[in-house]
Design a protein around this nucleic acid. Structure first.
Lengths: 103, 103
DNA sequence: TTTTCATATGAGAAGATTTTCATATGAGTT
DNA sequence: AACTCATATGAAAATCTTCTCATATGAAAA
């Protein structure tokens, strides 16, 4: 696996708006409009963000009538977020940028 | 956990030079100079990169004489890279940016 | 305590990503 | 077929990140 692959993958998560989308999608499949509403954001911004996440297969989509519904690739995203939660708990208690004091 | 925390964490990995450092450190502890040599890069660039990785506790450091030796936080980094290798194998065969054909 | 060697830091320039706005596309409705 | 609504796309402007260079710091050696 090329190292640049990791970079590509992590890059898609290096943006809090895109991470927010993933967190909203934990609740289940949503249309672009629903996401747009929930995140109080302009539609095209949501579409651009979803395109990046989709390129990495972190989300998938299906058309349903006029809408396109996006959902999480749970198999990857859930363990990934858990891993980082665990990391933060183990290594980042009041001692690093995670703690919100010393960023 | 704040969503911005994920973003901060992933941001540190969203750069292929920093990922390269982690991959080199898989082989074991290295000084800044050794990394600099191995990665054919100017020293200050390496130091800046290490600072970002350290802030997230993805690497740790200890001084030994004149040198500062950096090593991997294996507990987090190894499972993390494995998770993404697995993801790429499962979801990204010739169908996405991972495959190198359709980025 | 001066010199040397390794590493860290700061600030501006260079480069990359994100946001925004205008517009295109494409499915369903009339 | 023309219209509407949801989504996607492209390109320029705005913002953020990285790189580079000059310089600071700090431990060990002379």
């Amino acid at each position: 696996m090329k190292n640049s692959t990791y970079h590509f993958f992590f890059g898609s998560l290096s943006n809090s708006f895109r991470v927010n989308i993933l967190l909203v999608l934990k609740d289940g499949e949503k249309s672009v409009k629903e996401l747009s509403k929930k995140l109080k954001t302009e539609q095209s911004k949501v579409s651009h963000a979803l395109a990046v996440l989709k390129k990495c297969n972190l989300v998938k989509s299906r058309r349903k009538g006029k809408n396109v519904l996006y959902s999480l690739n749970k198999k990857t995203v859930i363990p990934l977020l858990n891993l980082i939660d665990k990391h933060a708990k183990l290594f980042c208690k009041g001692c690093c940028a995670f703690c919100g004091r010393c960023a």
